[in-house]
Design a binder for these strands. Structure first.
Lengths: 125, 125
DNA sequence: CTACGGGTTGAAGTGCACTCTAAGTCAAGC
DNA sequence: GCTTGACTTAGAGTGCACTTCAACCCGTAG
């Protein structure tokens, strides 16, 4: 598939896909007769993985590190697993933080709603 | 308390607190005889709230909007509640996303661990 | 044959949230 | 009196992750 279709199917823009290739986050794409990038299904899988890692808050530098390890073959598996384990812990911690944040928001919203009923200003912030 | 203590107690730097004041996210602080900022407990509460909103992914522009509404008195309560309700939904959605991300990470980690045992390369990415 | 909608490149620009710098003031301790 | 260290300001700089720009090429429809 061409870059526009890959963009459509991943939700990235063609610009962003070229940017990823430029910085080394995507392998250099094969070209068709016209010199246009031509992608297979593996590109879809890799971008999907990048999307998950991005959702996990992984910075691009770390994705690059992971991508380089992957390029070095299967003997880097344990190192890649370590990276993912570390990220897993960060994500778990972030979920905990967000759940606490959700409680704060719910409390504050409840305070505003009560204020709307009986005009007592509970909300200092 | 002076800015250094407020910084220590909130985990922000003094630079960041001055930056918040400059952009209007903190009220202009009262000064002591030397012209140094002098804070009360309310500053601590407000920064804690800002921290929660930041954890919730609220951009500074929206915090500014909220702060301005707060400055306009209690009749803006419903508008502030709406802002918090919207942010609450975003946080809830983000928790859902992160839980899915956690599953992806756990699956991949399990794949690497299995690979370490029987040398079958399950991990395409 | 020409217009059009793609595609290509390297380089520069953007927006966010800080973060740091330069040049100065001030109060307390030696 | 001098040094030290915390504070002050406006403004410039940083790092991240894109995003846009300028100038160009290529294949197909009319």
């Amino acid at each position: 598939m061409k870059i526009a279709e890959l963009a459509r199917r991943t939700g990235l823009t063609a610009h962003t896909i070229r940017y990823y290739e430029r910085i080394g986050l995507m392998p250099r794409a094969g070209r068709d007769g016209a010199g246009h990038r031509d992608y297979g299904a593996d590109a879809l899988i890799w971008i999907s993985f990048l999307g998950h890692m991005k959702a996990a808050g992984m910075p691009i530098q770390e994705m690059l590190h992971y991508a380089r390890l992957r390029g070095q073959g299967s003997q880097t598996g344990p190192q890649r697993a370590d990276i993912l384990r570390q990220r897993r812990e960060l994500v778990a911690a972030q979920i905990t933080t967000l759940q606490a944040t959700l409680s704060v928001l719910d409390d504050k919203i409840a305070g505003y709603d009560a204020e709307g009923i009986n005009h007592a200003d509970r909300n200092q912030t």
